[in-house]
């Protein structure tokens, strides 16, 4: 049975597109047929994060307007043949598509794919309404900052008003060193404020910047963020996966050190 998932946040720049690229690629690595849809019309970026920007022929608006068939617009990923991208249009705006058309599109894609992942634009206007229209569940991305959490709360309110069946939270870009000295809200703090289940915590990781530079999602790599994203993909599939040790210390000596530090 296929699932349509929207990745949203309200605030811009918290990592929606990075999360979409990595979670989508992660689900493909785990053997699913996945399509990623960039719904950010006018400001497309998922193509460039995935390194597929040179292959675009048709886009989301072309499909919706009937200028081409869905198959013609889908771009196969370089690394995983079971991962495809439906890019957004760059020269149009959010009003080029309606929620009704998005619902129809996602219904059609269900026949072909296990997971349909929608990368939502920032904001709460038309673009947001389009992106959530056909979704079964939502992943709300936030960072441990007041502005991102406030916007996440607003988005969660809107999703509940639209009767979204399942809402989970991803806390992105957490810095354990800052949490430890009390200068950053912890995962528990964010959970307490927003009262939505957390499906994953992703550490602030330089490797994300490197991966985006080269257009290759780092999910599944040895980096902490790469592992965190793969764990999220697993949890989406319903697996029980323990939370990652974000401090990255599992050695014998560090365990002894942390035992002493607890005293």
């Amino acid at each position: 049975m296929s699932e349509v998932i929207v990745i949203t946040s309200g605030k811009g720049g918290v990592g929606k597109t990075t999360t979409s690229a990595n979670v989508g690629t992660g689900l493909a690595q785990l053997g699913n047929k996945v399509v990623l849809i960039d719904t950010d019309i006018g400001l497309r970026n998922l193509d460039v994060v995935l390194g597929l920007e040179n292959r675009i022929v048709y886009n989301l608006v072309d499909v919706v307007e009937g200028n081409c068939r869905i198959k013609q617009a889908l771009i196969k990923d370089k690394r995983y043949p079971n991962l495809q991208l439906l890019p957004s249009a760059q020269t149009r705006d959010k009003t080029s598509v309606t929620p009704e058309q998005m619902r129809k599109l996602t219904e059609e894609l269900r026949e072909e794919f296990d997971y349909i992942i929608l990368d939502c634009p920032a904001g709460i206007e038309q673009g947001f309404k389009n992106a959530i229209a056909g979704a079964d569940r939502a992943l709300v991305v936030t960072t441990p900052e007041v502005s991102a959490i406030r916007d996440a709360d607003r988005i969660i309110g809107l999703l509940e008003a639209e009767e979204m069946k399942k809402i989970d939270l991803i806390v992105n870009r957490i810095r354990m060193d800052m949490v430890k000295r009390g200068d950053m809200m912890s995962m528990e703090d964010v959970q307490e404020i927003l009262a939505v289940p957390i499906i994953g915590v992703v550490p602030d990781d330089e490797n994300i910047v490197v991966a985006t530079n080269t257009g290759e999602p780092l999910v599944g790599s040895n980096s902490l963020a790469g592992q965190a994203f793969l764990n999220i993909s697993r949890r989406i599939m319903g697996e029980e996966v323990e939370l990652l040790n974000l401090e990255g210390k599992t050695g014998f000596f560090s365990r002894i050190a942390s035992w002493f530090a607890r005293k």
């Binding site: 441990p144 900052e145 007041v146 009390g182 809200m185 404020i193």
Partner: peptide, 9 residues
């Protein structure tokens, strides 16, 4: 500051 942020929010 983390606690301050939490309380304000």
């Amino acid at each position: 500051s983390g606690d301050v942020a939490k309380d304000r929010l």
